[in-house]
Simulated assay, not measured.
Amino acid sequence: MSIAEYFRKKHLTFITLVSWFLLFYIIAALVFWFISLETQNKQMYVFRVSELKKDDPTYYNKVLEFDKARRLKSFQYIGEGSTFLCLILVGAVFVYRATKRQIVLSHQQQNFMMAVTHELKTPIAVARLNLETLLKRKLEEPQREKLLRNTLQETNRLNELCNNILVSAQLEAGGYRLNRQELNFSQLAEDVLDDCVARYPQRIFVPAIQTGIYVEGEQLLLQLLVSNLLENALKYSAKDKPVQVSLEVEGKWAKLSVADEGAGIPDEEKKKIFTKFYRIGNENTRSTKGTGLGLYLCKKIAIDHKGSIGVKNNTPQGSIFTVTLQSV
């Protein structure tokens, strides 16, 4: 555990203890005032009854009136006290959850900044080194092509990272307007897959894409969705393991599935992975690249296209991500 994480947990523990202390103090004060008011109510009842003359013909009627007034006051105190208690409990839970959520979000944003810094520096450093090598040395044509191809791959990584960040910000702020049109989803998936094959020639891809599947949506966003799913599968599976890509129609729905044979995702993490900035593990010990935006964008894009996305376990190991969109 890093020093920053240690102090972050201590900070959260301190806030939790203070919140519980204030909550118990407020509840204790509320109970104290209820007991005080109820005691005063009974004393007033006894005092008013003692002021009556027992030989008064209306004595018993007045006693009943005083008792009724006392009971009404008691019901009033109970009702008001219960209402305030419920409001206090609801408010305390809301404040605690909001504070905890803010701390978690701040932690995720710090992880995101660390990941983005690493993601930006690595391709820039590689591209710069390749270009300096090309300038300073006279290389054979195959070596030049290899360096140029490697540099192009790194610039593509930068482009995808920038696209993820920009599109995420625009979708989050509601500033991205979908340009819906009828698209050949089969061709779109094949094009993205071909681009991935060209960028990762050493990886194994097993395509099973049914032709002639059309959906209505934004081409750039759907390309980003397919690309992010493929990048995610490549990141979290061994280089000698295949990545299976399938697209088929079931009724009125087009189903895109990307399956890997990686380590898989624990059941308790399956819902969290679609959260913004969320990544399994710790940013300091995590070996895979990423920013925690890819799967978040996939879910956002799928929902904006009136579809859905889910993940399940693969056999014998790994994960299968499935996107369901309405076909046309």
Score class of each variant (00 low, 15 high):
residue 200 Y to V: 07
residue 227 S to I: 13
residue 183 L to G: 00
residue 179 N to K: 13
residue 173 A to Q: 11
residue 230 L to I: 14
residue 222 L to P: 05
residue 174 G to T: 04
residue 218 E to H: 03
residue 179 N to L: 15
residue 186 S to L: 14
residue 196 C to L: 15
residue 201 P to T: 02
residue 192 V to K: 11
residue 210 Q to M: 06
residue 191 D to M: 12
residue 212 G to Y: 02
residue 189 A to K: 06
residue 210 Q to V: 10
residue 210 Q to C: 06
residue 235 K to M: 12
residue 202 Q to V: 00
residue 175 G to R: 11
residue 214 Y to T: 01
residue 187 Q to H: 13
residue 218 E to L: 03
residue 187 Q to L: 13
residue 176 Y to V: 06
residue 210 Q to L: 01
residue 183 L to Q: 00
residue 220 L to C: 12
residue 186 S to D: 07
residue 193 L to N: 01
residue 230 L to F: 13
residue 226 V to S: 06
residue 236 Y to C: 04
residue 217 G to C: 03
residue 214 Y to A: 07
residue 184 N to S: 14
residue 181 Q to A: 02
residue 198 A to C: 00
residue 209 I to C: 05
residue 200 Y to A: 09
residue 227 S to G: 10
residue 214 Y to E: 05
residue 233 A to D: 07
residue 217 G to H: 04
residue 198 A to M: 08
residue 214 Y to M: 06
residue 175 G to W: 15
residue 173 A to N: 05
residue 184 N to E: 07
residue 205 F to T: 11
residue 194 D to T: 06
residue 216 E to R: 09
residue 193 L to I: 01
residue 203 R to H: 06
residue 189 A to Q: 00
residue 211 T to C: 09
residue 228 N to R: 01
residue 215 V to F: 01
residue 206 V to C: 10
residue 181 Q to R: 02
residue 233 A to C: 01
residue 228 N to F: 04
residue 199 R to S: 06
residue 236 Y to S: 08
residue 226 V to E: 05
residue 183 L to V: 04
residue 202 Q to K: 15
residue 203 R to S: 12
residue 174 G to K: 07
residue 207 P to G: 09
residue 181 Q to M: 03
residue 236 Y to I: 09
residue 198 A to L: 10
residue 178 L to D: 06
